[in-house]
Amino acid sequence: MKKDSYLKRLLTLFLTFLKVGALTFGGGYAMISIIEDEVTRKRKWISEIEILDILAISETTPGPIAVNAATYVGYKVGGVLGSIIATLGLALPSFIIIFVISFFYKDFMQWQIIQAAFKGLKVGVVLLLLNAVMKLRKGVKVNFVGIVLFVIALSVMIITTIFTVSFKYLSLCLILLGIITGIVLTLLGKEGDKE
């Protein structure tokens, strides 16, 4: 790790993640290459090996992947203050851009052409979500318990929607069900991926 003054580190952290926030679309994986470029190649603050851990940790812990990665790099480079600064840098561009957009949003929506565009975008969002499912599916081990959990969650979500049962904590409870089932299976020694 190269020696730079603490203040300079914090400033660089802030600027690096400002760049990530302003330039990456969709977040998550796209940002890793920018982080690698700034923090590993230019400054040598984090080793090549450690940068690989960032993605693994960001995916494993709860919270948006981009925010997790910023917090982790920030902590490694500048401690707790570093993680706060990095995350704020990441959030600032989103904040400003969305703030400006939401000013125009209502007026914009009055236009016929924009309404037509957004009707198209809604169909686009469906495909985007289906693509995400296809991509995430590759990382899921197919086993009996997994299929049961999947079917339970899917049918609960669809049935409650059909009968317009609204429960604010429904998906949260389903996620908890997944966590608890996973932990119980591990306790019973049936995790299915023994090494």
């Binding site: 809604k122 979500l129 997994g146 669809i158 929607t161 389903l174 089932t181 932990i183």
Partner: peptide, 22 residues
């Protein structure tokens, strides 16, 4: 690892159901 294995199928189902309902 175990908790993640349990959460993944649920997350998959949540996103899929959002898409289908929409």
């Amino acid at each position: 690892k175990g908790a993640l294995n349990g959460v993944k199928p649920i997350v998959l189902a949540l996103i899929l159901s959002t898409a289908l309902i929409l």
